[in-house]
Write a protein that binds this DNA or RNA. Sequence first.
DNA 1: TAAGTGACCTATA
DNA 2: CTATAGGCCACTT
Length: 113
Amino acid sequence: MRVRQNRDPPRTERKFVHVDEQLHERVREVIASVPAGKVATYGDIATVAGAPSPRMIGRILAEDGHDLPWHRILRANGTPAPHLAHRQLELLRAEGVLADGQKINLRRYRWQQ
DNA sequence: TAAGTGACCTATA
DNA sequence: CTATAGGCCACTT
């Protein structure tokens, strides 16, 4: 349970500040709850957090994902977002999540199937 | 107001 | 495996 700690700059000074702050926060929580060695898809996060669309997850991560385990989030087919692929697979490998080429075996590593 | 743009998804061919 | 097609939704142009 995470109750807004020292996360700066203050919300009021961020670029995207508004109504869905609540959802935004919930999404962060869900992502943070994915354990090391496991992965989840954008869709998984959206469903669990109640986000209207998986696209929102990527958007939130791009804006506010620096302090989250963003590398544990994959696309529905097990591959990472193209522009991050190299780095992401590297981080996953470091926690024992091995890729077959660019693809991760979701059957094996997915969190809460 | 309309069209373009994403760390996306599912279905079909 | 690749390629479309349509849907998704907040945001920018």
